[in-house]
Amino acid sequence: DSKQSVIAFLRRDAAGKMLLVVCNFNPVLRQGYQMGVPNPGSYKEILNSDDKKYGGSGVTNGTVKAEKGEMHGFEQHISLTLPPLSTVYFQVPAARKPRAKKAVEAADAAAKPVKKTAAKAKKAAPAAETAVTASKRRGRPAKAKTPV
């Protein structure tokens, strides 16, 4: 956000855990700063350079819950208080693994009793023809197989 001198980025470790880092490079307190986030859930502030233990004013966020609503290419967003001239780190909640549509459909299909008509069963069965039936259909005599 170049107009407000704010930079935000995600960091991911080898295990796939993510951190959200937000930097406010202006000497202005930004309240209600909204930004899109990748996962639903609660974002816990784990480091804030404005914390009193680092000599700051003590403006912190604690834990912020993501709200539904598209923003910045994500399906949810959070609202933050960005202290002046600060950097805040948030632990990103783990992504919920949605059940795949095909997996749900397969589970539903397995739970239902299957009734096949003769026509459907014939269609579903592989077409296995012997040399004799194939040649009868074509009007030619069948070739005799010689024993090995």
Rank of each mutant, 00 (worst) to 15 (best):
D1R: 05
S2T: 09
S2A: 15
S2Y: 07
S2D: 12
S2H: 08
K3L: 15
Q4L: 15
Q4E: 15
Q4G: 12
S5D: 14
S5Y: 13
V6S: 08
V6T: 00
I7S: 09
A8M: 03
F9E: 09
L10Y: 14
L10M: 13
R11W: 05
R12K: 15
D13R: 07
D13Y: 06
A14K: 14
A14R: 13
A14D: 13
A15C: 01
A15T: 08
G16T: 08
G16P: 03
K17A: 10
K17Q: 12
K17F: 04
K17C: 03
M18C: 12
L19C: 05
L19T: 09
L19H: 01
L19D: 04
L20N: 01
V21S: 02
V22H: 08
V22F: 01
C23V: 10
C23F: 02
N24E: 02
N24Q: 01
F25H: 14
F25I: 09
F25N: 14
N26T: 15
N26I: 11
N26S: 15
P27A: 13
P27Y: 07
P27T: 06
V28P: 08
V28H: 04
V28Y: 10
L29Q: 06
R30I: 04
R30V: 00
G32W: 07
G32T: 11
G32H: 08
G32N: 10
Y33H: 13
Y33A: 06
Q34K: 15
Q34L: 03
M35N: 07
M35P: 03
G36V: 07
P38I: 03
P38C: 09
P38M: 11
N39Y: 10
N39V: 08
P40W: 02
P40K: 07
G41E: 01
S42N: 13
S42C: 01
K44E: 06
K44A: 06
E45N: 03
E45S: 06
I46F: 03
I46Q: 09
L47A: 12
N48S: 12
S49I: 07
D50K: 02
D50M: 01
D50G: 04
D51I: 00
D51M: 03
K52P: 05
K52L: 09
K52G: 03
K52W: 02
K52Q: 10
K53M: 09
K53Y: 03
